Amino acid sequence: MSRVCELCGKGPIVVNSVIRRGKARAAGGVGRKVTGVSKTRQLPNLQSAIITKGGVGVRLRVCTKCLRNAYAA
């Protein structure tokens, strides 16, 4: 089962997870140092919802943004 919104097509994105150590210069330290960068996936917030299409209820996996827009209309 794919993690993609069935209305807008929003899917997972790849982002960098940056690990830092040290104390910030503004707080009296020598500055923050990057000690590691690893790639992580951010998944969309998908919910199962029953949406009426043409008078028939259809169960779809939609993101919360589409869920708000579908029930607002």
Rank of each mutant, 00 (worst) to 15 (best):
S2L: 12
S2N: 12
R3Y: 09
V4L: 07
V4G: 03
C5R: 06
E6L: 01
E6A: 08
C8H: 02
C8R: 06
C8G: 02
C8Q: 03
C8N: 00
G9Y: 01
G9N: 06
G9S: 07
G11W: 05
G11C: 04
G11Y: 05
G11L: 01
P12S: 08
P12F: 10
I13V: 15
I13H: 00
I13R: 01
V14D: 10
V14T: 15
V15F: 09
V15R: 14
N16K: 14
N16Y: 10
N16F: 10
N16P: 10
S17E: 15
S17A: 13
S17I: 10
S17F: 13
V18T: 11
V18H: 00
V18W: 06
I19T: 12
R20A: 12
R20E: 13
R21A: 12
R21N: 11
G22C: 08
G22N: 04
K23D: 06
R25Q: 12
R25S: 13
A26F: 07
A26L: 02
A27S: 05
A27E: 10
A27M: 01
G28L: 04
G28F: 01
G29W: 06
G29Y: 02
V30K: 09
G31D: 09
G31P: 06
G31Q: 05
G31Y: 08
R32S: 13
R32Y: 12
K33G: 03
K33R: 03
V34T: 13
V34Y: 00
V34G: 05
V34D: 00
T35S: 00
T35E: 08
T35A: 02
G36T: 00
V37K: 15
V37A: 11
S38R: 15
S38V: 10
S38H: 12
K39Y: 11
K39I: 13
T40Q: 12
T40Y: 06
Q42T: 12
Q42C: 07
Q42W: 08
Q42P: 03
Q42F: 00
L43K: 10
L43F: 11
P44L: 06
P44C: 02
P44D: 02
P44G: 05
P44T: 03
P44H: 03
N45K: 08
N45F: 06
N45L: 07
Q47D: 06
Q47M: 02
S48C: 11
S48T: 15
A49I: 03
I50L: 13
T52W: 05
T52Q: 08
T52N: 09
K53D: 00
K53P: 05
K53A: 01
K53Y: 00
G54C: 04
G54R: 03
G54Q: 00
G54S: 06
G54I: 05
G55S: 00
G55W: 07
V56S: 13
V56E: 14
V56R: 15
G57K: 15
G57A: 14
V58Q: 02
V58L: 09
V58P: 03
R59L: 14
R59H: 11
R59E: 15
R59C: 11
R59V: 14
L60N: 02
L60C: 08
R61F: 05
V62A: 05
V62P: 01
V62M: 00
C63L: 11
T64A: 08
T64P: 05
K65S: 15
K65L: 14
C66K: 07
C66Q: 04
C66E: 04
L67N: 01
N69L: 15
N69T: 15
Y71C: 01
Y71T: 07
A72W: 01
A72Y: 07
A73W: 00
A73S: 09
A73V: 05
